[in-house]
Structures are given as structure tokens and as C-alpha cells.
Write a protein that binds this DNA or RNA. Structure first.
Length: 426
RNA sequence: GGGCAGUUACCAGAGUGGCCAAAUGGGGCGGACUGUAAAUCCGCUGUCUUUCGACUUCGGUGGUUCGAAUCCACCACUGCCCA
């Protein structure tokens, strides 16, 4: 059993830790859990850190429990939210629970022959039989409102103009009860999560202590931020999801590849399992020659493999090379195969005869759905953001030309540096 | 139930009869510089359109007016305080 806490510390994955946690982990195989809220039908990369905590835990010989919040999801966690959230419909919630469950199941080892096999639980299972009256008698009685109001997540909302509903106020009790229940039924002594969960987690340990004098431990990991202060995990296209149908493996790979130098250095420690010496050496090399972006490449590689598998990683690298490494090479050198098999490209079709006769470029771009309208296409061309076959279009009034056609039928349109469209003409 | 404040574009937030498609900031998108970075600078950001112009927007409905985001009436919703 290696020292989990020391390992996580050098990776920068520990924010707060309860006294005695390290001793507990060193003493015996410990069961620990992380909760995941089913706010969407897929997890996004923000949930990756808590997932990794569970994986590290299991690697260190302890028993991980991944908890899907079927019950807590019905209440809504106020932590870090400046206003009351909309409630999800039960249908949506059910769909989300299934989606999240399936994803979590991929990252942990559930083989029953392991003594520390992972478990996947849904807190709805133990909450549904509890009546409201039972709950406020058995749980509510142990925690004072004064205690609950002192929590940061609550205090902030009480001070804001928006207020807070009783539902969200109760959230910490609901989550606290999870910990208590797991402590009773699974001998779960530890909870982990993002640092925004600290308040909720502490309510849980408090409940365990007050209800039956039990001992419980916890630590949290820092919330990931970008060095420029932007939100982590968001891009122009929105969230980076783990579900390949929402964020393609290529886009996923690209996200990590585009990390800034400072971010990449801390992220590679957090998001990969590479060991300390390897990472230190890599960072040193990277600083010698930052333009090679060794850290970003390794980070993108490790993570894409972890989430999507080797095969998808290979495809993503291949597409990346075709789209970016050869960007100085003219488009005519791309083979039919290259064009057709590149991932992360939007494809559409167009009537070849109209193109050959010479059609104005605005009509072409709007009808192929590269742009919503001629006006939008015009603006972007005037801004210098459109290329055809890697040649910048300068005049919005120009006409199409026969020699646009690659291999007699393809046109490669580029908006900005990173958005590619392949128009097949026949 | 009573009193007060409010509802403006993706978000925050100005505007309180015409100069308003609506300040400013953030975000987003594009460009330059670079390394598919960061920082910086520049452009775009209601819709459609050959920059003319047309059309639709300021919680909803109706009204006053030559003219309404702005004034009036009613309705809806939100927050705060009191009961």
C-alpha cells in the first residue's frame, strides 16, 4: 500500500484535508467515496479530477465507491452557485443517471475477485424509502440550523439578493446523510471531492460523529482553473464532455493540446499517472524548447487514451497531423483518403455544375452551411477568416473557380485556424 | 396579506419621449504577432442584405403620442422587508 496522500500532494491534488486522514489510510484498507451529480447525461472533464482521485485510491489499495446522486440531483447543490437552479424533470434525471453511471463504470476496476473492487451506487436507493418526517426526525435533529447557516455556500446565498430555497438549503443534510449511510452500510470512512464540496462533506462527518460517535475522514482537491482566469473545460463549443458523441475524441485531444504552457505543467501532474521523475524531466525539456509543446502533447495523449482508448487516440493524432503539421503544405497534396477520413471536420455537399459555372462565393458558403447567411460569410471574409484549400479568400465578391476542386470533387473550406469544412461536389 | 424594489441583447449592466439596434464591461468569434501557447493590439458580435437599406427586439397585453425601452393601465414573474 503506497502512500496515497504523499502521491496526491506532489501532484497538487489536495486542497483541504481532515486531520488523521493520512494515518487512517496508512493503517488499513479504507473505503472512500466520491459523489457525482447527474446534472447532464454525460460527465465533462471537470469531473475527471474526482474520478482520478478514485482511481488513485484504488491503485493505492483502497476501496473506491462512485456514487451517482439520483437523490441529491433532485435537490440541487447550492455550492458555488449564485442563484437557485432549475429543477430537472424526472425523465431527464433518469436519463442523466444512466449516462453518468455508464461512464463511471469505465474508469474503475469492478472485478469481484479484488478485495478492493470498486462499487457503483445510487443514493436514490436508500433515500426513496425514507419519508420526510423520518428524515427531519432522524437526521435534521442532529444538526442545528446555526451550523448549516455558517456554511460558505449558504452564507453567500443568504447575503445575495436572490435568496435560497429551503430545498437547496437542505442539500447539505441530504449529502451528509449519504456519508452517514455509507459509513453504516459499507464501512465507508472517507469522502473526497472538489474543494467546493468541503462544506457538504464536513456536514457528513459531523452527522456520523453526532449520531453514533463514529470517525470519518475527508480531503478535497482544488478546483481546476486556467491561468488566465477563464473557466476550465469550456471552449467555443461549450463544455468538453467525456461522451464521444458530444465531444469527439479529436476535439478532446485538441483541447488538451491547446493548453497554455503554465496550465499544461500543472495539468499533466493532475490528469496523468506518469511518475514524478518522468514529469519533471519532461517539463525541464519543455522549458528548453517550449515551441515543441512536449508537455501538451503528452498530456493530450495520456488523457485521450485514458478516456477514449488507444484507437481513438491514434486517429486523433493522425487527423491533427494532417490538419496542422502539414498546414504549410498545399491542400492539393492531401489524398482522397486523407480528406474523407479526417475526423472533426464538418462535411456537406454541393452541386458540381453550379460550382464549375462560377458561383459567387457568398452563395456557396451559405448554401453549404459553412455560414448561416451571406451576411455572416461576408463579414468573416472581410475579417480575413476564410480560406479555401488553404488559400485565404480576400474578396467577398469573387466567384468560384474550377480549380478549386481537389481530386475533381472536394473543396476544403477553413474558418479561422481550427474549423474545417469539407464540401463534396457531384 | 401589507410595504418597497425590480424585469433591457449570451451574462452583468447603463439608458427614463425622437440623436436607440440601444453606452460600458465580460464572454464569444475572426485577424495580426507566435508555437494550433500566454500576454498584447485590431475588427466583428439582433436578423436579412452587393457597407444603401429593410425587418424584429428592452417581462406580457392594451393605451397616450406625429414618435415609446422610456409615459399610463392592467397582468405575470422575481427579490427584499414586515405580518
Amino acid at each position: 500500500m503506497n502512500n496515497l496522500i504523499r502521491e496526491l500532494k506532489w501532484r497538487g491534488m489536495i486542497q483541504d484535508i481532515m486531520p488523521g486522514t493520512e494515518e487512517q489510510l496508512n493503517k488499513e484498507m479504507t473505503t472512500a467515496y466520491v459523489g457525482f451529480d447527474p446534472t447532464a447525461d454525460s460527465l465533462h472533464i471537470g469531473s475527471l479530477v474526482p474520478i482520478l482521485l478514485l482511481v488513485h485510491l484504488q491503485k493505492a489499495g483502497h476501496k473506491p465507491i462512485a456514487l451517482v446522486g439520483g437523490a441529491t440531483g433532485m435537490v440541487g447543490d447550492p455550492s458555488g452557485k449564485s442563484e437557485e437552479r432549475n429543477m430537472l424533470s424526472l425523465d431527464e434525471l433518469q436519463k442523466n443517471i444512466t449516462g453518468v453511471r455508464n461512464q463511471l463504470a469505465r474508469f474503475l476496476d469492478f472485478s469481484p475477485e479484488r478485495t478492493n473492487a470498486a462499487e457503483l451506487l445510487n443514493n436514490y436507493d436508500w433515500f426513496s424509502p425514507i419519508s420526510f418526517l423520518d428524515f427531519i426526525r432522524d437526521v435534521g435533529k442532529h444538526i442545528t440550523v446555526n451550523y448549516m447557516m455558517a456554511k460558505d455556500s449558504v452564507k453567500k446565498r443568504l447575503e445575495s439578493e436572490n435568496g435560497m430555497s429551503f430545498t437547496e438549503f437542505s442539500y447539505q443534510l441530504v449529502q451528509g446523510y449519504d456519508f452517514y449511510w455509507l459509513h453504516q452500510n459499507w464501512n465507508c470512512k472517507m469522502q473526497m471531492g472538489g474543494s467546493d464540496q468541503w462544506g457538504n462533506i464536513v456536514t457528513g462527518t459531523e452527522l456520523i460523529r453526532r449520531k453514533n460517535g463514529g470517525e470519518a475522514f475527508a480531503f478535497t482537491c482544488p478546483l481546476i482553473k486556467k491561468s488566465d482566469g477563464g473557466k476550465f473545460g469550456k471552449t467555443e463549443k461549450g463544455n468538453i464532455w467525456l461522451d464521444p458523441s458530444k465531444t469527439s475524441p479529436f476535439q478532446f485531444y485538441q483541447f488538451w493540446l491547446n493548453a497554455s504552457d503554465t496550465d499544461a505543467e500543472s495539468w499533466i501532474k493532475i490528469f496523468t499517472f506518469l511518475d514524478e521523475t518522468f514529469i519533471e524531466t519532461l517539463i525541464a525539456e519543455h522549458r528548453q524548447n517550449p515551441s515543441a509543446r512536449l508537455v501538451q502533447k503528452k498530456l493530450a495523449e495520456e488523457l485521450t487514451r485514458f478516456v477514449h482508448g488507444q484507437e481513438e487516440l491514434d486517429k486523433s493524432i493522425e487527423t491533427t497531423q494532417k490538419l496542422f503539421s502539414t498546414s504549410t503544405v498545399s491542400a492539393t497534396e492531401l489524398s482522397v483518403d486523407d480528406l474523407q477520413n479526417m475526423e472533426g471536420i464538418v462535411k456537406s455537399s454541393f452541386d458540381i455544375s453550379r460550382l464549375e459555372t462560377g458561383i459567387d462565393i457568398l452563395t456557396f458558403l451559405s448554401e453549404t452551411k459553412v455560414f448561416e447567411s451571406k451576411g455572416a460569410a461576408r463579414k468573416m471574409i472581410q475579417n480575413g477568416g476564410v480560406s479555401i484549400n488553404r488559400n485565404k479568400v480576400t474578396d467577398p465578391n469573387s466567384l468560384s473557380e474550377k480549380n478549386w476542386l481537389l481530386h475533381g470533387r472536394f473543396v476544403l473550406v477553413q474558418v479561422g485556424k481550427k474549423n474545417y469544412f469539407l464540401i463534396e461536389c457531384d
